[in-house]
Amino acid sequence: METTHVPADDLRRALIAADPRLSKFNPLPRILAYDEFNTGTHGWCELIGNHDGHGNLDTVDVHMRDFRPPQLSACDFFDIGTHGAMSGNYALKIATRPATGHTAVAIRRLTMAQRGVIQFETYFTYKGEAATEESSLGNSFGDVEWDGNLHPSEAQFGAFTVATDLCDGDGIRYHCVARYQNTDLDNKFTRRWIYPTVPEPTPRENLHNQENLSPTEDFTAPDPKDWRPIDDKPQYLCYNEVPTKVNWHYLRWQFDTRTRTNIELQVNDRVMDMRHVPVPQYADKYEGLENLLNFYVSVRTHSPVRNFLFLDSALISVDW
């Protein structure tokens, strides 16, 4: 394989720095996908569980049949109208139902041409839905009492997740996952980055387990005890008090499909070493998922309030 020599690398970096669209990212040598949502959804679509050979959607696992279609959002709010995104008017919006435990998921499906380092970058924001007279839960929620600055909306936001579904030529399937848990299930702030210690249950595992599934099951790892903090330090993000102000945050996440391990996660000014974070593999080998390279983002509400994850833009790059 050809090696990039230094002058070419300098030129490449200068070209990226001079491009207003790419300058805010730090891509690895090859850009696989650049998604700005003024030009459509770029392959980010609703995740759904598998259905049977008759096309009968009743056979989809009950907790994987309502992950909601993503929206191209101008970030419209009741108080100011259109807020707009960071790179243009539109962001990709993933929205839950107003039901405690409901999860919305958008997925992007690729394959790997080689194994190596993969990086996912995005500018994102997260919000709870603004209240109306009918839907309001009052001025006090979780840890928050409205005081003119602090707003109960922040405690009504549960968690968002960046994750993958990966399978290589050896049939080994695994998920690298990072979740920002804003609140625990009692709506108390935790503000932690966490990861699952078990692989995601598959439709085959659930095929004869349907009676035990609930529609609000956490599909990534159902048991809250199977999640661990990446480190002990909470990360305070810029919710900006009310549900109608959006401030865009930078996220950069790297993992290595050669070693099937995490590398690091950067969110704004915090860089977390993820090399020690284990990546559980499925015990069984998989067929039909050769070189699977899926990315998904999800949002999960811990309150009866719609939760939203907005992506202004995303960039996927690799070192091959």
Partner: peptide
């Protein structure tokens, strides 16, 4: 998607400006 309703309902809001 294959949802059964026995009472009045409204779909989730969809933004499509």
């Amino acid at each position: 998607r294959n949802t059964t309703f026995t009472a009045d309902f409204a779909t989730e809001p969809y933004e499509a400006g």
